[in-house]
C-alpha cells in the first residue's frame, strides 16, 4: 500500500490524452446550443467527461497496490498488426492469392516457434483453403491475381 499503481496511472493518462485530442478536435466543430445541438456538442461533452474520468483514475492510482509490469509482445505487435495492414495495401494490387499468402507468412513470423519452411507450408495451405472457399466456392468478388503482377509478367 501507499505505492503507485502504474497500470492505473498510465490508463488514466491514456484517457486524459485521448479525451484532450478529441476535445481539441471538437473545437473546430459547431457546438450549437443545448436545444439545437451542433455536430461538436456531443463529442465535446464526452471529451470533457473522459478527461475528468482519466484524471480521477490517475488520482486513485496513488493509493493502491503496486502491480508488476509484464513484458510487451514487441515482435508480435510488429508482425500481427502488420498483417492486416499488408493485406489492405496489397489485396487490390497483387490480387487475393499472393496477398493472403504473404499476409499469412507475415503473421507467422510473429512467433518464434515456427521454422521458415513450416511457415511457408502453412501459408500455402491457408492460401489454398481461402482461395477455394472464398473465391471459388463463394464467388466473392476478389481478383485472384492483380494488375501489379501482369506488369511484372511482361
Amino acid at each position: 500500500m501507499g505505492s503507485i499503481n502504474r497500470a492505473d496511472l498510465a490508463a488514466g493518462l491514456v484517457f486524459v490524452i485521448i479525451g484532450a485530442v478529441f476535445g481539441l478536435t471538437s473545437l473546430g466543430l459547431d457546438m450549437g446550443s443545448t436545444l439545437r445541438m451542433g455536430p461538436g456538442y456531443f463529442p465535446m461533452l464526452l471529451s470533457v467527461l473522459l478527461v475528468l474520468l482519466g484524471g480521477a483514475i490517475c488520482f486513485n492510482s496513488f493509493r493502491q497496490m503496486h502491480i508488476a509490469v509484464e513484458p510487451y509482445a514487441w515482435r508480435g505487435m510488429v508482425f500481427i498488426l502488420g498483417a492486416p495492414v499488408f493485406f489492405g495495401l496489397t489485396v487490390r494490387g497483387l490480387g487475393f492469392v499472393p496477398s493472403i499468402f504473404l499476409t499469412t507468412l507475415l503473421a507467422a513470423f510473429a512467433g518464434l516457434k515456427l521454422r521458415p519452411l513450416q511457415a511457408v507450408l502453412l501459408a500455402v495451405a491457408v492460401t489454398l483453403f481461402c482461395t477455394l472457399v472464398f473465391s471459388v466456392a463463394l464467388g466473392l468478388p476478389f481478383r485472384r491475381f492483380g494488375p501489379w503482377l501482369s506488369v511484372v509478367g511482361v
Partner: peptide, 15 residues
Amino acid sequence: MALHFKFAAIAATAA
C-alpha cells in the same frame, strides 16, 4: 493454381 497463373499470363499478353 496453374490455371490462375496461365490466366494472369493471358491478361498480361492482352495488355
